[in-house]
């Protein structure tokens, strides 16, 4: 917990430095090189960027914690509603990807481990590894070509019609979630596979077999329970990568999520939106990591909460 807070604090400093110090003269950047110096000064003053850095950081972060994420340079309106809407959309996309990838990834890993070193294992392991290393926009483009352009099964944009119901939205989200699925599948399957191999090789599994339990019971009650613990941690740590992937996927599929919000803000040098978006992602990541630690300790009584590592 304390560690996550320290990490978030450092992240906020980096975001602050990146967004408010590195760009130099914000007013000049917005108004362009030919604007009158007095106009630049006035804008800087009204944006508050002519104050000392420490004051700026403090007012930025204390407002952020209270839900005031500042004012967008471009839209001239509060940032928070944009971020909240976008985060909601991204959560939908991430949820679809997760709901697909977690069971299938675990199943893939389990099947690979049960067929260790046989062709099926090779296909799952190598295939999973190959798609994991590919940039999301590359798999995204290939999937769009296959399912959207050639087969015409799925829409190539995630922008669903107005008032679309749950299933229509789901239909529009399948193709965008597939590249994320592919990236995560390899990681999850690999972790599940190695966890399974270790559990299958353990003394308790041998004991369970030797005392005459049927094989499915051994797998279900003894192997899986122990094998899937590390996988849970991996799934949570992948949240960060998932969000990184969202920036690309949402741009590719024109989806109004936190990724495309960050992308648009970056394009337009809209630093308040950019900073709020990135810090929000950091918070999501920290929460996911905490949740994983908590879940892990619930599922594994050998680990006690509070003792570091």
């Amino acid at each position: 917990m304390a560690l996550s807070l320290v990490t978030l604090f450092l992240l906020s400093i980096m975001v602050f430095l990146g967004g408010q110090v590195l760009p130099g003269n914000v007013g000049r950047a917005i108004l362009g090189p030919f604007a009158d110096q007095r106009a630049v000064d006035a804008l800087n003053h009204s944006l508050g960027v002519d104050r000392p850095l420490l004051t700026q950081y403090w007012s930025w972060i204390s407002n952020f914690i209270q839900g005031d994420m500042g004012t967008s340079y471009i839209f001239r309106s509060p940032v928070a509603p944009f971020v909240i809407d976008a985060l909601g959309n991204s959560m939908k996309l991430a949820a679809v990807a997760f709901v697909l990838v977690v069971p299938i990834g675990i199943l893939g890993g389990v099947i690979a481990a049960l067929n260790l070193n046989r062709p099926l294992d090779r296909i799952i392991s190598l295939g999973g590894l190959s798609v994991t290393v590919l940039p999301e926009f590359v798999t995204g483009i290939i999937l769009i070509l296959i399912f959207g352009v050639w087969l015409r099964w799925l829409p190539i944009s995630a922008a669903w019609p107005r008032d679309a119901g749950f299933f229509t939205q789901l239909y529009y989200l399948i193709l965008p979630s597939l590249p994320l699925f592919l990236v995560l599948f390899g990681y999850i399957a690999r972790m599940a596979r190695s966890g399974m191999i270790e559990a299958l090789d353990s003394d308790y599994t041998r004991t369970a077999v030797l005392k005459g339990l049927p094989w499915p019971t051994v797998i279900w009650r003894h192997v899986l329970r122990n094998a899937l613990l590390p996988t849970i941690t991996v799934i949570a740590t992948q949240t960060g990568y998932l969000i990184g992937g969202l920036v690309v996927i949402e741009t590719l599929f024109r989806y109004q999520g936190i990724g495309s919000l960050i992308f648009t803000a970056a394009r337009g040098k809209d630093f308040p939106v950019l900073e709020a978006g990135i810090l929000t992602i950091g918070i999501v990541y920290a929460v996911a990591t905490l949740a994983a630690d908590f879940l892990y300790s619930v599922l594994n009584p050998r680990i006690r909460l509070g003792t570091d590592q």
Binding site: T7, G18, I243, I278
Partner: peptide, 18 residues
């Protein structure tokens, strides 16, 4: 660790824009 908590692409985005 804080640096690694956010995806590289996003760190890079922030720095490159700045």
């Amino acid at each position: 660790e804080a640096f690694m908590a956010i995806p590289v692409v996003i760190v890079a985005l922030l720095a490159i824009v700045a």
